[in-house]
Design a protein around this nucleic acid. Sequence first.
DNA 1: GTCACTAACTGACCGACAGTCATTTTTAAA
DNA 2: TTTAAAAATGACTGTCGGTCAGTTAGTGAC
Lengths: 232, 232
Amino acid sequence: MGTEERKAREKEQRRETIIDAAEKVIFSKGLDQATMDEIAKKAELSKGTLYLYFKNKTELFIAICERGSELLNSRINKILTEDRTGLEMIRMLGETYLDFVRQNPDYYNAFMYYENLRNTEELENSDAAQVCEENRQEAMTYMTRALQIGMQDGTIDDSYDPKELAVILHACTRGITMLNHMRQTGHHFKMLDNMDIDTSSLFKNFLNLVGKGMATEKGRDIKMTNGHSSET
Amino acid sequence: MGTEERKAREKEQRRETIIDAAEKVIFSKGLDQATMDEIAKKAELSKGTLYLYFKNKTELFIAICERGSELLNSRINKILTEDRTGLEMIRMLGETYLDFVRQNPDYYNAFMYYENLRNTEELENSDAAQVCEENRQEAMTYMTRALQIGMQDGTIDDSYDPKELAVILHACTRGITMLNHMRQTGHHFKMLDNMDIDTSSLFKNFLNLVGKGMATEKGRDIKMTNGHSSET
DNA sequence: GTCACTAACTGACCGACAGTCATTTTTAAA
DNA sequence: TTTAAAAATGACTGTCGGTCAGTTAGTGAC
């Protein structure tokens, strides 16, 4: 009998419905201002029901982060399958990351909030948080892989430790995307507007800077002639 | 009569007392878990009194951030007075920043939380937040200045726009310090521990990477031979 | 010394909200 | 139709940020 499966499916659907509602409310007014009652109302359920699907408000929020992190990773892991030099892959990873931030400022905002959750226990016991962490780790693996490819194809300076370089690049990219994000969300961050600096030029120069730092002569030549590819 | 001044002084002292208490409570259990009652108790005052000195909990928290930002800036603005090449100044600015994060993880944590406060209005009307923003801007100015010096003394590639480069470097440094910070505070961030990468090596390589990206041949030579100075 | 006035302080109280649980409603197998 | 389990409900509880009417302490005038 398919009753069991149907029920499981419905349960999963309801769960998604709740996350949908939570996104709408939390994205529009922020986590602190969003109330469980309002989310319940938006989901056309009672508050109590929310607690049948999520342990608490934080868990529900982390489920949103999980969604975002899945979305981001689904884009990132396409890149490694393409036929490019390692250096190009690195550049594309960075661009993909920035595009994600631009297109999904709400998810990125959620990521930033997520990182500020101090309570380790709460996150330790959360399946959703576990998935987020795994995705993060996975993204790092892709980056390391791209660097190794670059070191083999001679586009990236192989005097660095690829894992360490991946961590550094990831951190720097985070810094840059955060900047862009803050400007975009109007985050009391007039700094960039005071100086009139446009984001895409900023990001281009960032990639050039670190690109120059890690590229070999060969990689540098390819890259300097053209923002993207060049080979076929 | 000095009564007025004495009173003003006492009022200021009381304000500081409250911030002291707030730091103790908030640093130990986090902003959300800290209650105004507990802060009041620690300050040996009643809750009501807290609200005579601070508009609300957020304002009190921002006052903590203000302290931290003043402390950070007091260290940063010493560097520009020293007699060094521009590239060395940049390196020292970065190191100072990292040292601050290492020595004052609580303040840095507060900074991170501060940036997540979305409500622009709340921050717009806050004097303390205004000071924080000014300090941030000031730090950026110092960085730009150091870059200009480096471009003049020939240690830094002058094909970049100094202001833009300053923004990029600042963002990257934030990314790196955040990484270090998260590891330090045990922030459910096992990533770095999984790979065994030590922070100082990480930071050294970061500086080398961006250093290589922006240094001229001359600057690169000076820097590569010795982490710090070389001239007298 | 004491009176009058003000500034500083207090803590009981309020409203809002996260989270609970006894009760009701729905579902589906017997 | 009966019945038992599963799902959903919403009134209720405890906590906490913020308020405010009332109290206390400090100051200057006489």
